[in-house]
């Protein structure tokens, strides 16, 4: 078998690497999109850290 720089085998290996790479990128996009949709469906949310939450301050009775 003649030694060549670019063997047909390399093409197959490249197709596999490219395929796996594209699948992973697509997976990242899907999880990101799904997260955006899921979070938006929660309605209004508020963060709990480092902010004043007015409903936790006891009302002053007059």
């Amino acid at each position: 078998m003649a030694i060549r720089v670019e063997h047909e085998l390399h093409k197959r290996r490249f197709s596999r690497n490219l395929g796996v790479g594209l699948v992973l990128v697509a997976f990242v996009v899907i999880v990101f999109g799904l997260t955006v949709v899921k979070v938006k469906q929660l309605g209004a949310v508020q963060g709990f850290d480092h902010v004043v939450r007015p409903e936790l301050i006891p009302e002053v009775k007059q």
């Binding site: 078998m1 085998l9 093409k11 197959r12 290996r13 197709s15 596999r16 490219l18 395929g19």
Partner: peptide, 15 residues
């Protein structure tokens, strides 16, 4: 090993 690698799968084979 040469023979084995001749059969190495492409992405389409996994698909």
């Amino acid at each position: 090993t040469t023979f084995e690698m001749e059969n190495e799968a492409s992405f389409g084979d996994y698909f």
